[in-house]
């Protein structure tokens, strides 16, 4: 076919475009070998290709930290902003441009520490976006400081005799926030589950919060050994409305049928009891979404001037 150069026809062209995974791949990541960030990036690129995202209408917003380099390694639009402040930026983008697909990538320090206030409120705003919290239980980029999700007793450079306090449980906390609509947990070392969870998050209408357990080979390798080596330490939450991955039952024999519509069961399952549970804890698409209540019809400059003139009439002398 003849390719029209007129940009007005670009939209028609878009439908014809087919994207390969390589169309989403940016420069080679500079993460450490064995870092869980690689797995999450791979799963995300697979999702982008599977769902045929338009690269120009997809935006990845991140904070600061190892995992927040994420957007640099994609060929979509990206916003690598400030430590802890990815969510407000994403909120602003979505408020103005609900047409864009927005993903937020944060670390545990970003989300549960310096930006914790935004985490609470973004959950409550329930805007249609995917929030991936890559939780390696440590501050990596600043070289080994305790994070809110570092398990009690685990040493770091700032708390060398072990973290003083019990770790914050991000899933339990998110489930406690009014108007939460999607809360899931997955692990980057189980790629099919990781992929299925991010995919479910993307298809959710609302704010989809996914905590991704993620290895840091440099500073927190011992914390993830049990999960890696002993599948029995992991319990999968399965349900048609949640995540079901064929074949995983052969390895992960502990499976619990959990209806993500049941918030009380979700909160019970999220409580700390030594078990690592993966799956969709809660999902409710009936919750109000902020951008829907706030989205307004665009009006022309001329119409604005007419209406502003009426407004000035009220102040006329």
């Amino acid at each position: 076919m003849t390719i029209p150069v007129n940009s007005l026809l670009q939209c028609a062209l878009d439908d014809e475009r087919v994207f390969e995974r390589s169309d989403y791949e940016g420069p080679v990541p500079r993460w450490c070998a064995g870092c869980g960030d690689h797995s999450v990036l791979a799963a995300t690129q697979r999702l982008l290709a599977d769902e045929q995202f338009q690269p120009e209408t997809t935006v990845f917003v991140s904070g600061i930290g190892c995992s927040s380099r994420f957007p640099h390694y994609l060929k979509t639009y990206g916003f690598h902003g400030l430590h802890g402040r990815a969510l407000p930026v994403a909120t602003g983008i979505k408020l103005h441009r609900p047409d864009l697909d927005v993903f937020v990538v944060m670390g545990d320090g970003d989300c549960t520490s310096i930006g914790a206030g935004h985490w609470v409120h973004a959950t409550r705003y329930n805007m249609d976006m995917v929030a991936l919290m890559l939780d390696n239980n440590i501050y990596g980029l600043t070289k080994n400081q305790t994070s809110p999700t570092t398990p009690q007793g685990y040493p770091s450079n700032t708390q060398p005799r072990g973290s003083w306090l019990p770790a914050l449980n991000p899933v339990e906390a998110t489930l406690g926030i009014t108007n939460a609509s999607f809360v899931a947990q997955t692990a980057e070392w189980i790629p099919p589950h990781l992929f299925a969870t991010i995919k479910a998050a993307y298809h959710h209408d609302g704010f989809a919060f996914v905590r991704i357990l993620q290895r840091c080979p440099k500073y927190t390798a011992p914390l993830f050994e049990e999960g890696l080596k002993n599948p029995d330490s992991i319990e999968l939450l399965v349900h048609e409305d949640g995540v079901m991955v064929d074949g995983l039952e052969n390895v992960y024999k502990n499976q619990v049928r959990h209806d993500p519509g049941d918030i009380h069961a979700a909160r019970r399952l999220a409580e700390e009891d030594g078990r690592t549970r993966l799956g969709v804890f809660f999902r409710d698409e009936s919750r109000p979404r902020y951008e829907e209540t706030r989205h307004l019809q665009a009006i022309t400059a001329e119409e604005k001037v007419t209406r502003l003139s009426e407004e000035l009439d009220l102040h006329a002398v």
């Binding site: 909120t91 103005h96 441009r97 706030r294 307004l296």
Partner: peptide, 28 residues
Amino acid sequence: EKFGGVVHQAEDEIAAAGVAIGASYAGK
């Protein structure tokens, strides 16, 4: 709202700046 506009009361001053920057980035 008559002008297609939104007053966003953010959760804090920092977020208010972030939301404005995000909106500018998105084109307006």
